[in-house]
Nucleic acid binder design. Structure first.
Lengths: 353, 353
DNA sequence: TGACTTTGCTTAATCGTTTAAGTATACTCG
DNA sequence: CGAGTATACTTAAACGATTAAGCAAAGTCA
């Protein structure tokens, strides 16, 4: 029961680099070289030091290290206070993925909420003080911060799915046009000819991209689209329901008087639109199929489960972190657009003969 | 344009405590005493040092400070990986409030995601290494971490709305029974006599608390409740819709064959239940009123806007942070249950004569 | 072989703070 | 008045790492 007492020497404190040095019979400098994989240490000593570190459970004091190296071992994830709640939720998912990826004991990621207001100097201050090693900026940057970054050309990656890429910045984007194209093409491939689109006009860049993708899929298959079936009023779930009612009220293209499938630019909208369609007496998917975009956790669990084009926060996180670390290492980094994922086929979509 | 050149002496680096000392004509120690509001410095010198700091825009190097004081100036917010997505979203909101409250340049808050798996030693490691000054644990702690905390009786506040309070821990709770009581009592006060309840059986503690509150309100007003009108199948929005359909299928208590009002233990459920009721041909709020619990951002924007009992992430965050800082300062702290807020009356509820 | 380079290690200064200990000056009081 | 105590400051040693510079021993080469 008391056999861990040997770890308690030195008053139970964590071992330092000098403790390791003493135990391994070398100098502190040598231990440091081993830790940082520098050359100039013989394999034998290297192994001995490593063994000691493993035995006593050494781990670095990042404050001491950072004091000397002028690093903070912290990266900041900036979210605009003004961002839509739904966006924020998604961003947090991405941050969660980043946090899981960052090996514990090395870098940590701290979320900061910045207002678009010019007077918010949080980020410039962090940079000036050397309190941050890199920045992940969701949905763009406030002008003042952007300027602060440029001046020192500071490692920063902009993650802005659904927003226009920032001209000078390294950004991680999603090709919503392509995603939408795939979603619509998937419906068409199952025999659907009367397809409607429910989008979100309140985010113009996103709206246009998704609409373009949808239109392209229809055009390439020589399928007509009723103007009234391309909707933009989905800004919240009730907006999506309204869009659906408007679609149903507009009448049909080629016969049956209603679309046989609907592509919604967001899962949550699809869920609402589905409800609205049912409220109007249609069966899902027998009368109308629904496909969404995002793959929110709920999509699998609703009845019927919602087919969707998944957007992976994990991939977004990985791409952003890779680029940020490259920049932090002084390497150049380029913007990237995440390729579209495969459709997740679920029961909300059925074949149409 | 170039007049900030005087700030660039010393190679553009941030001024240190010794720079301040030199400029103010005192020793570094004195500056430190001023910064930390220690006594033993004359008012005159104190003022002079402060003036210099303000002039050159001094800010502390927390790594150096922490190295000496053995603090990390970091608090960790722990979220279980296994938590329900809806819970996580709420927790993120609370973390956001905490982040905004923590004055920049002092403590920062970093989210960590821990699995319930015994093998996850992230937190014990952080504590052992002195990499964290305090912990906010959402929805309880994994057993291993709990043990690590107790051993050193480490500053930790458990934020677990909707879950049973941990016995030995300082926790911040929400009195869901009281909230539910208020919601139901509000409906009754407007003349509703036939009221149904939609809850979430999958979270037993939460389910029981909300159900108890609902029942108490009805009992105190001598109103009968149909057994079939107390539902627990709301685990997702579609579950809530099903609950609503079951309620409508069950028939009425006192005449009209359907409830005139429904209390849903979560806004999202209320939104779905509302849709389901409409799908079945009822008007909201004319035929059936709906009230939720939470005040999700969407509640205000849907049509009709959803009445609800708000839960303020801000208050939760403040209470938790207050307690954590008290504990970090060595003071004792006690668990607290946040009092219920007032009903947010919105158009989804109407008076019943 | 002797000069030069390489290898493998140590020494010691440094990063920006805090804080115990020291010192000079002024204040207090029997 | 002199001893003792405050007061206001400074000096210097830490905290735990990194890293330039130094130095011995071994390797290389004409």
């Amino acid at each position: 029961m008391e056999k861990d007492s040997k770890q308690k020497k030195d008053g139970g404190k964590q071992p330092t680099i000098s403790d390791i040095a003493k135990l391994a019979g070398v100098s502190a400098a040598t231990v440091s070289y081993v830790i940082n994989d520098k050359k100039g240490v013989s394999d034998e000593v290297r192994a001995r030091v490593r063994a000691v570190m493993a035995r006593v459970g050494y781990s670095q004091n990042l404050r001491a290290k950072g004091l000397k190296t002028r690093h903070s071992y912290t990266i900041h994830a900036v979210i605009r206070k003004e961002a839509a709640p739904a966006c924020k939720t998604f961003y947090f998912g991405v941050i969660a993925c980043m946090a899981e990826r960052l090996s514990p004991g090395s870098y940590s990621i701290v979320p900061v909420f910045q207002s678009d207001d010019e007077s918010d100097t949080t980020l410039p201050d962090l940079i000036r003080n050397g309190d941050t090693d890199g920045i992940i900026a969701f949905q763009g940057l406030a002008p003042r911060t952007a300027r602060a970054l440029e001046r020192g050309n500071f490692p920063c990656v902009v993650v802005n799915p659904g927003f226009e890429a920032e001209p000078g910045a390294v950004s991680v984007q999603i090709d919503f046009e392509e995603l939408s194209y795939r979603a619509a093409a998937y419906l068409v491939s199952l025999g659907h000819k009367d397809v409607a689109f429910v989008g979100m006009r309140s985010l113009p860049f996103f709206f246009n991209a998704t609409k373009r993708g949808f239109r392209r899929a229809m055009r390439e298959n020589a399928l007509p689209v009723r103007k009234e079936w391309i909707r933009g009023e989905a800004t919240c779930s009730e907006g999506a329901a309204k869009a659906m009612r408007n679609i149903l009220a507009a009448g049909g293209v080629s016969g049956c008087g209603h679309p046989t499938a609907v592509f919604c630019a967001q899962d949550n909208f699809a869920i609402s639109a589905m409800s609205a369609a049912r409220a109007a007496g249609y069966r899902v998917p027998e009368d109308i199929s629904f496909i969404g975009l995002d793959d929110v956790p709920e999509a699998k669990y609703i009845e019927p489960p919602l087919a969707t084009i998944p957007i992976s926060p994990q991939i977004l996180a990985d791409e952003a972190i890779d680029r940020l670390f490259a920049m932090m290492a002084g390497a150049p980094a380029e913007s990237v657009t995440i390729p579209s994922m495969e459709v997740a086929p679920r029961a909300s979509v059925t074949r149409r003969e």
